[in-house]
Amino acid sequence: MPDSLARDDRWTPPLSAGRVKPADVGENDVLPMLLGMARCIERSDEDGAFVAFVDLLDRIQSCGMDLRMKTQCFAQALLKNIDWKTGHGTLHGALFESHADRFPPMELAAGVAGTILEGLLERREDAVLVDVGIGNGGRVAGLLRSLAGRGTLPRSLTVVGIDPAEGALAEAEATLSSLASGLGLPFRFRAVPSRVESLTAAQWDGLRPIGSRIFVNAVFSLHHVGGNGTRDAVLRNLKSLKPEALVIAEPSADFESEDLLLRLAHAWRYYGACFSILDRMDISQEERTMARMFFGPEIVDVLGMPADLRGERFDTVPRWLSRLRDAGFRPHADLCRTAARPAEGILETTLGADHVGFGFEGQVMSAAICVR
């Protein structure tokens, strides 16, 4: 292929030129598609590169194994540019946002956590919500809309957003402030630009007087806190806020172990179950491909990263419950009266004194936990 093609501004990614039938894709067709991805990356079009990547994987499904592996290696290498330019884990974070609302173990655990939190916050006076890993505030916005729809908004609300991404915090503040104003809800937002495990003693002390009715929410965020001692210290610090409730949602697997063989065995079972769940879901091939993209970086993190750099440090539900008990938390009486909707079709639901679990073929995949 002439070098001029790679720099031809008139040349567009293959998505805009119509689909290529999988059977028609050969060695000479792949480079133009990779160049389309590269051009998106060069102009900082993260969404375009992502869509082109998904489309490329879809098109090579019927190709020979050698060409598929070669193409995937080059395409995944190109995508590393996105995380490098826009912040480590950006692509994975974007995939999480689109994936969590549809993949049953995540959807159900997060949904039950939200239902629990709604019941706790409704019509409260001077409620304070401490959200660990708030991101851009999308989940809290959904919570407020749901409460407003039922006419059960708290009388006033302060949201403390803890997140290392300052841009996301700014977006969360703008989104939630605007929404609260439209709903007539007295509202304050306090941004804490930090990882929760990096908060200093002075910062924790500064959070304690913020209100007497504190509720803590942590949806799929605490497993990123690394190291047993660090994780337990965070739970003790959260307990020191004397919250009326701590609501968390987490996957269930033992990725915290330093034993590679144990992590491999747990990863094989957990992600094997994830792939089986995907195969049973009524979704398009493109959505299935996107979901597998989400799991890929996680598996690399679990099995291929040094201990101090791993981010996907899942714990089992029994170990989470043990950690919470050791930190001084006890089951919350309101859990049993929440609408823990049974899983439909794919997952089984179990209700404990302090958690709602979701399983697949006898294996616990995720849980929503409520303690005080």
Rank of each mutant, 00 (worst) to 15 (best):
L79C: 13
M69Y: 07
P105S: 09
R231H: 13
K242Q: 07
A94R: 13
I214C: 06
E286L: 03
I134H: 04
V356S: 00
M69I: 13
P186S: 12
S252Y: 11
A368V: 06
I346Q: 05
S181K: 07
D308H: 12
F187G: 11
L15M: 15
T200Q: 01
L179V: 13
A75P: 00
F50C: 03
L144S: 12
L321W: 03
K85A: 15
S181H: 07
V317N: 05
A168T: 06
I248A: 05
I41A: 13
I369K: 02
D83S: 13
W268T: 11
L129Q: 02
A180P: 07
V216P: 04
W268A: 08
E171D: 10
R313E: 04
H92M: 02
V140A: 13
G206F: 11
T175E: 10
F187D: 10
G357V: 01
T158N: 06
G184E: 07
D326G: 02
S181C: 13
I248T: 08
S156H: 05
A17N: 12
A249F: 08
L57Y: 05
R280V: 02
G226C: 06
E107N: 13
L5Y: 10
I162N: 02
G18E: 09
P243L: 04
E173M: 09
P2M: 08
R330V: 15
A23H: 04
S98E: 12
R288A: 12
M293D: 01
R59E: 03
E361Q: 09
D315M: 10
V364I: 13
G36D: 06
M281W: 06
R325F: 01
I346G: 03
T115R: 11
A165T: 15
A38D: 09
F189D: 02
Q203M: 14
I116R: 00
E361V: 03
R150D: 11
G149H: 10
E166Q: 11
H99M: 11
G142F: 09
L91S: 03
Q61I: 15
G119A: 03
P209H: 04
P342D: 09
M65L: 14
S198T: 13
L108N: 08
D163A: 11
V130L: 12
I82H: 04
G161I: 08
R231L: 15
L324I: 01
